[in-house]
Amino acid sequence: MLLIPCPYCGARTENEFAYGGEAHKVRPEHPEEVSDEAWADYLFLQKNTNGTYYERWVHAHGCRRWFNLVRDTLTNQVHGAYKIEEEPPKVDETTYV
């Protein structure tokens, strides 16, 4: 069970939250103008890192606000949460092979 530190509500158990996938993906400004490759990239392609991962979560059964989380996807260690408009905290990034 993850204990997720919602930046608005504090630490809560994972089943209060819903997952939003990779963070810091920027939606193309004009989707109708980008190539199919670029659109597929935005829509489907994932970093899917084995290690330190920046991801979006929403506190679905709480404040219902979106925020970002830095978590190690192998060990499940949570490095910290930050609001959408904030810069990610500095962490020692790890990638496992």
Partner: peptide, 13 residues
Amino acid sequence: DAYNGYSQWGSNP
């Protein structure tokens, strides 16, 4: 699990 992960055990809920 509801979220990405590479641990080979999975979440309790």
